[in-house]
Structure formats: structure tokens, C-alpha cells
Simulated assay, not measured.
Amino acid sequence: MMGGRNNCTQVTEFSLAGFTEDPVTQVYLFLLFLLTYLVTIVGNLGIIILIRTSPNLHSPMYYFLSNLAFVDLCSSTIVTPKMLVDLMSEKKSIAYAGCVAQVFLFDIFGISDSFLLASMAYDCYVAICHPLLYPLVMSPKCCFQLVTASYLVGLTNGVGQTISMSTLSFCSSSTIDLFFCDISPLISLSTSDTTPSHIILTTAASLFGVSSILIILLSYVAIIPTILSINSAEGKRKAFSTCTSHLTTVSIFYGACFLMYLFPSSDSSRAADKWAVVLYTVVTPMLNPMIYSLRNKEVKEASRRLLKIK
């Protein structure tokens, strides 16, 4: 199979299938996704500015949250602007180099997102299960190291998936049945031996995806019994409120992930698959600032103070 790579002309651009050929529907989708993207920008930038300018939000949880907002903003920007352009264009295509860049950046921020959520779970665990040790354990140095590690793991994943793509040949088919470049449909589209790419993809999913999920699960396995053992109702309420926003974010993020990657595609389910991908790539980055703004009293109070100042 690999020998065929030299006997074909490698594609210089890919066509993107998009959502629909109906021009009226495309206009409605453009307006919907444009509004979603604008809310994503305002919400995530607002969270970052609020945390940076509010002294009462200078704590580990909000340090992680500001980085999560940055990652969500970046991951949405990698996908949504190109999608908006394609919705209003007759020709929906992306150059090979642009596709490589999209795979590289999307995989960096996707894994960074999951490890930031894992870091936030660990922060909740220390705060609830070991409150006396919290200032010592969650020091500024430790928080910086956890965030840096999240980005480095994401970078490792991005490099791995880019190397995976570089081993693939695309001789006959060049239409990606999606609205952006992702490694999974590219592997399916390839005309060369995809074994190395499958190995890299499976290894990355096992090492990075499973490990981040395990950190979150183990943290909450310790957190929940600790909360239930608290005698006072007020103490339980405060402990639960510490984790509620994070649990909501984790549920939406991994729920969208599972819909996108774990459920097998079929001809009859491709439209549903695309909307699962929209949930993961477009909607989830918009929701996180709302979840933390609506459910967190400290964020609400900081917002009111900031607005009064201005």
C-alpha cells in the first residue's frame, strides 16, 4: 500500500462537505454560528479580564479557569471562522497546509482542555479533602506547573497527530465529510496504509484521554464521601458549590467528546455526527463562561464591581 504513494498525485487541497447545500439554510446556520462565536469571544475574554483585574479571584481555581477560557477561545477560533466563511461560499475547500495546521492546533487545545479540567478536579480534591494543606499544596508554583504540563501534553498530542497525518496519502478522494480537518476522517479518507496513524491515534487517546478522565474520576471518588461526611447542611452546601460548576463543565465537555469520537459513524447517522461535532467544537467553548458566571457568587460579585468601576 505504501508503495502506491509514489504512483499518485498527492492532493494540494481538500473539499469540506459542510452541512447542507440549501442556500437559505446556510444563511440561517451562518447567523446562528456567528452569534455563538461572538458570545464565545465576549464570554471567554470577559472571564479572562475579570480574573486578571479582580484581586478576590486570584486563587488557583480561577487561575485554571482563566487558562480554560483561553483554550476554549483558541479552539473555537481554529474551527468557527473558517466554517462561517464556507457557509457563505460556493466552494468549500482548505489547502493541505491549512488542513495540517488545523489538525495540529485543534489537537493541542483539545488535550490541553481536558488536562486543565483534570487540574481543576485536583484543586477541588485538595480544597475539600485536605483544606489545611491547601495553601501549601496548591502554591503558585504548583499551579503554574500544572498549567504548563497541560499545554505541553497538548503540544505532544498535536505533534503526534501531525506526524500521523504526514504519513497519509490522499490520491483519489479529497472530500472530508465534515466542516473542518480532523485526524479521524482524514485516516478514513487516506489511500495509503493507515496502520501507523491508527496506532498514534489509539496511543494518544489511551495515554492522554484516559489519564485525564482517571484523574477527574479519582478526585471525585475522594471528594463525594468527604462531602457526605460533613455534619452541617451549610458545610455540605458550600462544598458542593465548590464543585458544581466544574462538574457541569466536565459533563458537557466529555459528553460531547464521547458523541464525537466513541460512537461509530454510519451513512444514516452522519448528520447527527456533525451536530455532535458542533456541540464539541462550537457550543461547549461558549457554555463554560456562562456556567461559571451563573453558578458562582464570587464571579457575579466581581462582575458587579468591575461594571460599577467602569
Score class of each variant (00 low, 15 high):
residue 121 A to Y: 04
residue 29 L to N: 05
residue 72 D to C: 14
residue 225 P to W: 02
residue 151 Y to E: 12
residue 166 S to F: 15
residue 5 R to C: 15
residue 21 E to F: 01
residue 99 C to L: 11
residue 65 L to N: 05
residue 29 L to W: 05
residue 69 A to C: 09
residue 279 L to V: 07
residue 128 I to H: 01
residue 93 S to R: 13
residue 285 P to W: 01
residue 221 V to D: 01
residue 247 L to I: 04
residue 280 Y to R: 06
residue 132 L to S: 15
residue 223 I to A: 03
residue 152 L to I: 09
residue 310 K to N: 15
residue 53 T to C: 06
residue 229 S to A: 12
residue 216 I to K: 00
residue 95 A to F: 12
residue 108 I to T: 05
residue 241 S to W: 07
residue 87 L to I: 02
residue 114 S to R: 00
residue 253 F to S: 13
residue 81 P to H: 06
residue 222 A to M: 02
residue 41 I to S: 07
residue 300 K to Y: 07
residue 40 T to S: 08
residue 223 I to R: 08
residue 62 Y to M: 02
residue 216 I to W: 02
residue 148 T to W: 15
residue 186 L to T: 00
residue 257 C to Y: 09
residue 22 D to L: 05
residue 18 G to L: 00
residue 150 S to A: 12
residue 87 L to A: 01
residue 230 I to Y: 06
residue 287 L to I: 06
residue 40 T to D: 04
residue 259 L to I: 03
residue 277 V to I: 13
residue 64 F to K: 05
residue 199 I to S: 09
residue 27 V to D: 01
residue 276 A to W: 10
residue 119 S to G: 15
residue 159 V to H: 01
residue 213 I to H: 00
residue 102 Q to G: 05
residue 288 N to L: 08
residue 139 S to H: 04
residue 24 V to T: 13
residue 48 I to E: 08
residue 159 V to S: 06
residue 238 K to A: 10
residue 174 S to T: 09
residue 147 V to H: 10
residue 87 L to T: 01
residue 149 A to T: 07
residue 86 D to I: 02
residue 294 L to T: 06
residue 131 P to L: 11
residue 101 A to I: 14
residue 258 F to S: 11
residue 80 T to C: 14
residue 153 V to H: 00
residue 278 V to Q: 04
residue 261 Y to P: 00
residue 46 G to Q: 03
residue 103 V to I: 15
residue 127 A to K: 10
residue 255 G to W: 12
residue 245 S to K: 07
residue 191 T to F: 11
residue 4 G to A: 08
residue 268 S to N: 12
residue 255 G to T: 05
residue 245 S to H: 03
residue 14 F to N: 02
residue 152 L to C: 12
residue 111 I to K: 00
residue 122 Y to P: 10
residue 249 T to S: 14
residue 189 L to Q: 13
residue 262 L to D: 08
residue 56 N to A: 13
residue 94 I to C: 08
residue 8 C to F: 03
residue 147 V to A: 01
residue 245 S to M: 05
residue 232 S to Y: 08
residue 41 I to L: 11
residue 189 L to T: 11
residue 231 N to Q: 13
residue 15 S to N: 10
residue 12 T to I: 03
residue 263 F to G: 01
residue 18 G to H: 11
residue 205 A to E: 00
residue 188 S to L: 02
residue 15 S to W: 09
residue 202 T to W: 04
residue 258 F to L: 10
residue 142 C to P: 04
residue 53 T to I: 08
residue 185 P to F: 01
residue 102 Q to T: 10
residue 160 G to S: 15
residue 16 L to G: 02
residue 39 V to W: 09
residue 180 F to Y: 15
residue 51 I to F: 05
residue 239 A to W: 10
residue 273 D to Y: 06
residue 157 N to K: 03
residue 149 A to S: 14
residue 285 P to G: 11
residue 19 F to L: 12
residue 163 I to R: 06
residue 167 T to R: 00
residue 30 F to L: 07
residue 134 Y to H: 14
residue 72 D to F: 14
residue 258 F to G: 12
residue 293 S to H: 07
residue 174 S to C: 09
residue 306 L to G: 15
residue 62 Y to H: 07
residue 163 I to H: 04
residue 143 C to T: 10
residue 291 I to S: 04
residue 160 G to R: 03
residue 149 A to R: 04
residue 271 A to I: 10
residue 93 S to W: 03
residue 164 S to L: 04
residue 102 Q to F: 08
